[in-house]
Design a protein around this nucleic acid. Structure first.
Lengths: 225, 225
DNA sequence: TGGATTATTATGTCTATACATAATACCCTG
DNA sequence: CAGGGTATTATGTATAGACATAATAATCCA
């Protein structure tokens, strides 16, 4: 009856009802285990979970305290573009708008950690022949297997299956449509577009790819808390 | 030497190098524990972590398999507005632009799960007296403690500390600035704004608050993968 | 053969114990 | 009193063993 989720619930209740006020230290694991009549490992699991959510802050020796300002953490699932389109009940296709090998601008070169030439690739993703997303991407051939024919497989899809694990950062913004994006998406320049920018690095920290995704108007990124 | 993180690393390596291809089933916990020379619980911890990341899919009895399409999961930290402003090295302040009690439009009433009147609140957040964010919020007084004076404490801040735990959903979008938002933020109507919309519910599923945050141009939401 | 029941199995979780680790608190010395 | 070293302590992790649970596979009966 005292599963770790039950304990998590009870701890949350005490925080919510201010039995344990914001910022206050809570009893140690051993004490709580004794109180709840379970093993310390069970309490540990519950508290670790709450710490991962940002509700608690834990430090060795210092103990556990309720987060003073509970930072909300939300998990975003970032699917492959094909899946996003198909989730809308539309058929996905893509068109390569341009591909070339060029020396990148300074900002990109620095982000990718290389001075050599990169592959520049512009792709338009469509759902039932309607523009869905404009993809402007830099690829670092020095950090990637031989590039395929991007007309056959989109870079987005090729990358998730050929570079299984990597780190990087994502940023979201709202930008006015550039001339290129407007033309590709069939909207007026300056229209508000939802932008996703991603920088991906391999295990050695080399830049693999940098991409700017401009979503057609109406796109919403959603998640539950 | 065989901590659960080491095992996680090794499992990831096998996935990356296609020893275990995408979509394939991997050996059971007991088998892996024997191979790595550790307890099953240790393997379990590693595999659970990878499943939480979306790299593996696990089902009782069915076993564990590599995710066919590795859905990327990113964790967003959603701080209080004050913290966002202060993180930029600016001093936070807020101004209440309007507060009233009205019957909400149909869409809001449905989202909040009530037909009664709600509190409508418009707030402008500033950093060093420069407009930072426009907050347009519905509050459900039936699901909240008595409302404070929102000129003294912003609704954003009051809510995180008085409603410690709740569920809800968040959506991000890019919208053109409405007349109200443009005026408040001091930008031209139609300018691309980054919008955060949040619907918060309490433990019983009652709508607590619904808010639309319009960030001043230049705002970027960032996270690491 | 179809449908319901039962057996099997891999993951999920709990326990008790042990040791590791990090960080604080304390104490001792110069 | 400052500085550094040491003791203490709460969390972090590992282990073996056990039982729970869910889902599939096998079986049995109508």
């Amino acid at each position: 009856m005292t599963g770790w989720e039950d304990i998590r619930t009870e701890v949350l209740r005490r925080i919510r009802t201010r039995v344990w006020p914001l910022g206050a230290a809570i009893p140690g694991e051993a004490v709580l285990a004794a109180e709840f009549g379970c093993a310390r490992a069970t309490v540990n699991r519950a508290l670790r979970d709450l710490a991962a959510q940002g509700v608690l802050e834990r430090r060795r020796k210092a103990g556990t305290r309720v987060a003073a300002i509970p930072v909300r953490k939300a998990t975003l699932e970032i699917p492959v573009i094909r899946q996003q389109v198909e989730a809308l009940g539309r058929r996905h296709s893509h068109r390569v708008l341009g591909q070339s090998v060029v020396i990148p601008p300074e900002a990109i070169a620095q982000a990718m950690g290389t001075k050599g030439p990169l592959v520049w690739l512009e792709t338009l993703h469509l759902g039932d022949a309607v523009p869905f997303l404009h993809e402007a991407r830099w690829l670092n051939p020095a950090a990637l297997p031989p590039l395929p024919d991007f007309m056959a497989i989109s870079a987005n899809e090729w990358l998730v299956t050929s570079v299984t694990y990597a780190t990087g950062e994502i940023a979201f913004a709202a930008d006015p449509a550039s001339a290129t994006e407007a033309a590709a998406l069939g909207v007026a320049p300056g229209v508000a577009l939802f932008i996703t920018e991603r920088l991906t690095q391999d295990a050695e920290g080399r830049g693999i790819t940098q991409v700017r995704l401009a979503h057609a108007p109406g796109y919403r990124l959603r998640t539950v808390m």
